[in-house]
């Protein structure tokens, strides 16, 4: 599913709202998460999952093509952990012990 398809699906349910408004709502949701992570905050959406920022230590890496050593600086990366309901959901129909 693409972002445009998500907006289209919402439009089916919110027929009384103009599509631009729904598009904006989706943009606001994603922007709020992005802004929070950029500030270093956590975003917890119960049932769905939690977004957080993880620190990666500086390390000495290697260019796999040339074998050259390069210094990779420390950085912060976005991280998502699926919530219980979402985890159970994608496992529905799979081995019940996996839920």
């Amino acid at each position: 599913m693409l972002r445009s398809e998500l907006v289209a699906k919402l439009a089916e349910r919110y027929g009384h709202m103009p599509a631009e408004k729904l598009e904006k709502a989706v943009a606001i949701i994603l922007d709020e998460i992005t802004d929070a992570l950029a500030r270093g905050d956590r975003v917890e959406l119960r049932g769905f999952g939690a977004f957080s920022v993880r620190k990666r230590e500086a390390r000495r890496g290697r260019n796999p093509r040339t074998g050259e050593t390069v210094d990779v600086p420390a950085k912060s990366v976005p991280f998502f952990k699926a919530g219980k309901e979402l985890r159970a959901r994608v496992n529905a129909g799979a081995d019940p012990e996996a839920r």
Partner: peptide, 29 residues
């Protein structure tokens, strides 16, 4: 660096503020 946690409530408020939906509509969306 702050270490706040944003929840559904804050995201809902942002939709109310920036899209102009009601609180109920924003929460449902």
């Amino acid at each position: 660096m702050s270490s706040k946690t944003i929840t559904r409530a804050e995201v809902t408020e942002a939709i109310v503020r920036d899209v102009g939906c009601t609180r109920q509509e924003s929460s449902d969306l």
